[in-house]
Design a protein around this nucleic acid. Structure first.
Length: 424
RNA sequence: GUGGUCGUAGCUCAGCUGGCAGAGCGCCGGGAUGUGGCCCCGGAGGUCGCGGGUUCGAGCCCCGUCGAUCACCCCA
């Protein structure tokens, strides 16, 4: 800040994504888009900032994410806005606004913003892909949504991902359970960790998620929410489990799984990577939110979705040693020693035929252009010197295999490319 | 918000108890006049993060500050 003469850099906790890393991102999103489409999800774009109430009401004022980490600002018109800290609330806001026919299935890819101290796998701007399925409370939807995420993550090459599953109950059964839990915690408040001794009453469920030994000791004795579910929630949860087993998706029940957003009901789940260290091992998670649409002013509408962190998933891939895919090499590299006009023309023709083609610029020496051709990774260099230019021909030189180079008419080359689909 | 570590070339880093800013990689050019990869030669590129202090002299010591990174908390 005080270094006025320093060149500007990306703000704390944000990152530029450049090639070749950006290629992994492209592939990641493309793959997700194809799978989501197969499940009947359509892409939805919403603004990255919203009326701050969208997040306050949905995620919860008391949640860490909204209470301490949200980027909020007032615009020039005095509106209270917030950068999106997660994906679901915005999609639900859009659903309420446009009232599409249900069931409605949306997928998205978006940046998310949280003001935290950055660390490995934790950024102020991170990116997620995700889906939201609104309008059905059928447990088969839960199973499909989880199976989409599972298939995507394992399809990327992640072998060490664990699916944890829990149910948060619903408006019928959760309040009684929360009361019971609060009473237990109140009776043993002196045994809790410092933070939760103060805050347990606000959201007793959070204590279940506490990693400190004192809280764990207390909550181990506490009743499990899975044991306190109402008949309807129990039936739902059983159906989800059966469905997952049926599809061969491994999971572990985790009665301590309490996710950070208040809107969750019934099914909640999280995908963690055994290859990632410590607390930053969650690559994705989600759950059902049967009350969220109403909270945001819409008609009673059940919903379920998940988000997957792109940076986290890529870190997990690195940690598992899955080699990053590299961008495709060009089909050909054009070397022009005559001023560039010939290169300009042939490059345009080949690209028009659908080929990735690169060339040199600035009239560099042949040696320099050949070096560039080699570096590009192209299997073939198309060389145009004075003789070729004069006769409308081009010299084909193979760069990755032993072969006599040959000179052919440009028209013949193009005709050949058109029929064979291969340059050279 | 709390704590640890670290800031020297585009990248990875060396630089002794203070004494003329370095290497490798990368980039650019050249190695008998149109041929890349290996090799050889040459070149460009640095306010040593920034500000102050100590000193004849600071990349090195001291203070501050900014940034990066890791951990806690929480999450993707």
């Amino acid at each position: 800040m005080s270094d006025d003469n320093q060149a500007p850099r990306a703000p704390t906790g944000t990152h530029d994504v450049l090639p070749p890393e950006s290629w992994r991102w492209q592939r990641f999103v493309d793959d997700f888009a194809r799978r989501a489409d197969r499940f009947g999800f359509g892409m939805v774009h919403t603004p990255i900032f919203e009326d701050a109430r969208v997040f306050r009401r949905g995620i919860g004022d008391e949640s860490e994410v909204v209470g301490k980490e949200m980027y909020e600002f007032e615009d020039r018109g005095g509106r209270q806005l917030a950068l999106r800290p997660e994906g679901t609330a915005s999609i639900v806001r859009a659903f309420v606004q446009h009232r599409p026919a249900t069931p409605w299935r949306a997928w998205y890819v978006t940046p998310s913003f949280r003001y935290e101290r950055p660390q490995a796998g934790r950024y102020r701007q991170h990116h997620q892909v995700g889906v939201e399925a609104l309008g059905s409370e059928d447990p088969d939807v839960d199973v499909e949504v989880i199976s989409l995420a599972w298939g995507f993550l394992t399809g990327l090459g992640l072998d060490q991902v664990t699916l944890q599953l829990n149910s948060m109950g619903c408006a019928t059964c959760r309040p009684a359970y929360v009361d019971e839990l609060r009473n237990l915690l109140a009776s043993r408040v002196d045994e809790l960790c410092d933070e939760h001794a103060e805050r347990y009453a606000i959201n007793p469920l959070r204590v279940l998620d506490c990693k400190k030994a004192p809280c764990i000791a207390v909550t181990e004795d506490a009743p499990k929410i899975a044991e306190a579910l109402c008949e309807s929630c129990r039936g739902h949860h059983d159906r989800v489990r059966v469905g997952l087993v049926d599809l061969g998706i491994d999971f572990v029940e985790n009665p301590r799984l309490v996710r950070g957003f208040d809107y969750y009901t019934r099914t909640t789940f999280e995908f963690s990577s055994g290859a990632l260290e410590g607390a930053q091992n969650a690559v994705g998670g989600g759950g059902r939110y049967d009350g969220l649409v109403e909270m945001l002013g819409g008609p009673p509408t059940p919903g379920i979705g998940f988000g997957i962190g792109i940076e986290r998933a890529l870190l997990a891939l690195d940690a598992e040693g899955v080699p990053p895919e590299l961008p495709p090499v060009p089909s050909a590299f054009v070397v022009d020693l005559t001023g560039g006009e010939a290169a300009r023309a042939i490059v345009a023709r080949l690209r028009g035929l659908g080929h990735k083609v690169e060339r040199a610029y600035d009239g560099r020496s042949m040696k320099s252009q050949m070096k560039a051709a080699d570096r590009s990774g192209a299997p073939v260099a198309l060389i145009i010197g004075a003789e070729e230019a004069a006769t409308g021909s081009v010299t084909i030189r193979m760069l990755r295999q032993e072969a006599e180079q040959r000179t052919v008419a440009v028209d013949a080359l193009l005709a050949d490319v058109e029929t064979t689909g291969v340059i050279g």
